[in-house]
Design a protein around this nucleic acid. Structure first.
Length: 754
DNA sequence: ATCGAGCGTCTTTTT
DNA sequence: GACGCTCGAT
């Protein structure tokens, strides 16, 4: 019934080729006939109900550590094993590859057979799969390539240049943000006010044209195009409705409006839609997630609903802290987790003088804990921003503590990898202008901005692609002209080499012919980069071995897709060492020992969240997620003065710590000394502290109305003279031993000397 | 066309 | 403190 794509890519999607099985169980008839499965034996009544109520809409509000993934996997297993639903008639959608892999792993255990061809994937991977199979029906190039965030930024900058939009007028970041929010369905174009509105309209249009022209789609397009496909093509729609008899969506609180719309289009009339969510763990509003979707779901589907609030993971101490933090959020449905575990040890709160102290403390604690018999695998360091990992990496390495870093400077985002991938993309589609621009002069071929400009405008004039324009005579001078011709030949040559040689061999050839090898020779990091690139060969071979019948071309295509859709290397079963990751990255994971570091106002919650209550609440949920990752040992750390942009800034404790009953905390480091004279630890902790911190700040502001030339006294730096005042910061010259420091004007350590 | 010096700009999180 | 960008010198 459906056409196979030119290159037989349908091979990757074998379950689309056959006639889909009609759901063989309707309205729970067999459900009642079967004895209660062993699948529910070790579940609590609520969990069991969620597993067994297979028909109709169902909503589970699942607190952290309440066995959510367990419910999801058991439910799928129940459908397949007990009710005989064919494996590929179940669609399970997650948000991260990590979660998808975790689910597949557990299902593999339950089912005892491969889950590879099952529809368990992220929204984006699922959409890519659908579009590869049926995208041609909405006029999508079957070899479309998916671009990532960096590419989007790049593209927007190019477009701004082409349209003479000054970066001073509007920042590319803002445009991208707005663009993506509009595409995600959180906003419409008309919500944006002038003068940005007209700029955004121009950029939007130009952006979509460019994507279309170059057979590219961005992450949001993946969703949008599938909706379009299902809307327009009744045949395809029927196909998927017949296919997906049971739909499960994990982390529903993280769906954006577009994704919600997609779910509606996917499920057809059966409404066997099972969603799991927890609004307290919604941490992706910044990319368009809409917590309201949970409420919309209730309204639109009137589902059966249950709450899972029994936590099997953490000690009561940890859970209490989590509850106290999240309670501060105004806009939430009240839900309190309870634990069946004991009190456990207190939460340790260490404060250091500056960054090295903090890192040293964490490292030492890790060593100590390891000596008491806790494996490095069971420990994690969580931070707000990726950049924080660096110091810890160094320290762990120098103490020979094994660690793995998750996310961050992902392999797939490295420059050399992106370059080589651009070459790969040109092999698939030489007319891809984004990739063309990336590598046309990388390595250097004597093609500068001027020549490229000419080429581009001529190509546009004659209506041909940049690539084809290379072979034309457009009055470009000697060196550049040759460079362009060479490049044109190069790509053709590489295509042949790709077909002719084993992959590793081809990769070497590519590096040599492009001049990349030569370029790496002059690079101090050249050896590492080279190894990174050659690593691609293992990925290729791995994929090839999974699909032995597939052509080289298809494997390459699949590899590129895989690289864009998964941002990190994941080996779910292979833990080795202490885990380092962002708080976002930690969602869904658990560890015996958790360190949450850099808990300072301005860092976490981030400075950016100061503006709005909404953002602050999201930060708080992030803290909640962080705390609930810990099973037994939880550590908070921060420092008094942090080096930021090369200057020390005094930082206050994160307000999230203030929300926690001091009784639950064990103080260490600088905290110990301050404890005695600081009333904050004596009275009622909740409002008092937040209140006092605010008051203190206000007071200091008045006291320290600093001007240039004022004499000040600093508690640890001694006397000094103000040499400059800039907004809330001031630069003070202390004695020559201390030197010149830039500090916050309202730094509590500064006193004006009259 | 390319390289290097100097300058301004940063702060977040991810499919 | 690091990166990206612009500008001037080769």
């Amino acid at each position: 019934m459906f056409q196979k794509s030119t290159f037989g890519l349908i091979f990757f999607y074998p379950n689309l080729t056959g006639t889909p099985m009609q759901g063989c169980v309707k309205f729970g008839i067999i459900d009642k006939m079967k004895p209660t499965s062993i699948l529910t034996k070790d579940l609590n009544p609520n969990q069991a109900e969620a597993v067994l109520s297979t028909e109709g809409p169902f909503m589970v509000i699942a607190g952290a550590g309440s066995g959510k993934t367990r419910v999801l996997t058991r439910r799928i297993a129940h459908l397949i094993l007990d009710l005989g639903v064919p494996k590929n008639n179940v669609l399970a959608i997650t948000f991260t590859n990590k979660a998808a892999n975790e689910m597949k792993g557990r299902l593999y255990h339950l089912l005892g057979e491969s889950t590879r061809e099952m529809w368990i994937s992220t929204f984006h991977a699922m959409c890519a799969r659908i579009l590869r199979a049926h995208g041609t029906r909405i006029d999508l190039d079957p070899h479309f390539q998916i671009i990532d965030d960096d590419d989007v930024n790049q593209l927007i900058k190019v477009i701004m240049k082409e349209n003479n939009i000054s970066k001073d007028l509007v920042k590319p970041r803002l445009l991208k943000h707005l663009l993506m929010h509009v595409k995600a369905g959180q906003k419409t174009l008309s919500d944006v006010e002038e003068p940005i509105h007209s700029i955004l309209s121009t950029v939007y249009q130009s952006y979509q044209n460019k994507l279309k022209k170059n057979s590219l789609v961005d992450f949001e397009d993946l969703i949008i195009k599938v909706i379009e496909l299902l809307k327009k093509d009744t045949e395809v729609r029927q196909f998927y409705h017949d296919l997906f008899n049971y739909v499960l969506v994990d982390e529903f609180q993280d769906t954006n409006n577009r994704q919600y719309e997609l779910i509606k289009w996917l499920t057809g009339t059966h409404h066997n839609l099972f969603i799991v969510g927890d609004e307290d763990q919604s941490i992706y509003a910044f990319r368009g997630a809409n917590i309201q979707n949970i409420k919309s779901f209730e309204k639109d589907y009137a589902p059966k609903a249950i709450v899972l609030n029994q936590n099997y993971r953490s000690t009561n101490t940890i859970l209490n802290a989590a509850n106290q933090v999240i309670k501060m959020n105004q806009s939430r449905i009240k839900k309190e987790l309870f634990s069946t575990r004991d009190e456990g040890p207190k939460i340790t709160f260490y404060k250091g003088h500056s960054n090295p102290d903090e890192i040293h403390y964490v490292t030492q604690k890790i060593i100590e804990l390891n000596q008491t018999g806790i494996a490095f695998d069971d420990m994690a360091i969580l931070y707000r921003a990726n950049a924080t990992s660096l110091g810890y990496e160094k320290s762990l390495t120098s103490h020979q503590i094994p660690y793995r870093i998750i996310g961050s400077l992902s392999f797939f985002k490295r420059k050399e990898i992106k370059d080589i991938m651009a070459y790969f993309r040109l092999l698939i589609n030489p007319h891809d202008e984004l990739s063309f621009e990336r590598v046309i002069n990388e390595p250097k071929r004597g093609i500068g901005a001027k020549s490229l400009e000419t080429l581009k405008s001529q190509a546009k004039l004659y209506g041909i692609s940049y690539f084809d324009a290379c072979d034309e005579d457009f009055g470009i001078t000697g060196k550049a002209k040759n460079g362009l011709k060479d490049f044109h030949h190069l790509i053709h040559k590489l295509r042949q080499e790709f077909e002719a040689r084993p992959f590793l061999d081809f990769l070497e050839t590519l590096l040599n012919l492009t001049g990349y090898t030569a370029m790496l020779k002059t690079d101090s990091m050249g050896d590492v980069r080279r190894e990174n690139i050659l690593e691609l060969a293992s990925y290729y071979e791995e994929l090839k071995s999974m699909y032995p019948e597939t052509t080289k071309f298809e494997v390459l295509l699949a590899m590129l897709e895989d690289f864009t859709l998964r941002s990190e290397e994941e080996e779910p079963d292979q833990k080795n060492g202490v885990s380092l990751m962002t708080l976002h990255g930690a969602k869904g994971l658990e560890f015996d020992v958790v360190f949450i570091v850099s808990l300072e106002q301005g860092l976490f919650p981030t400075f950016a969240a100061k503006e709005s209550q909404k953002e602050l609440e999201e930060e708080r949920r992030l803290m909640y997620v962080g705390i609930t990752r810990a099973k037994t040992h939880l550590y908070f750390t921060n420092v008094a003065d942090r080096l930021i942009y090369g200057q020390y800034q005094h930082h206050l404790d994160s307000e999230f710590i203030d929300a926690i009953d001091p009784e639950l905390l064990e103080l260490e480091g600088l905290n110990l000394q301050r404890q005695r004279n600081d009333q904050r630890y004596q009275n009622d902790y909740r409002q008092t502290h937040a209140f006092k911190a605010r008051q203190k700040r206000v007071m200091n502001q008045n006291v320290n109305e600093l001007n240039q030339g004022d004499k000040v006294s600093h508690t640890s730096f001694g006397e000094g003279v103000v040499v400059a005042v800039d907004g809330s910061q001031c630069t003070i010259a202390f004695s020559h031993k201390i030197g010149i420091k830039t500090l916050m004007k309202d730094h509590p350590a500064i006193q004006k000397v009259s």
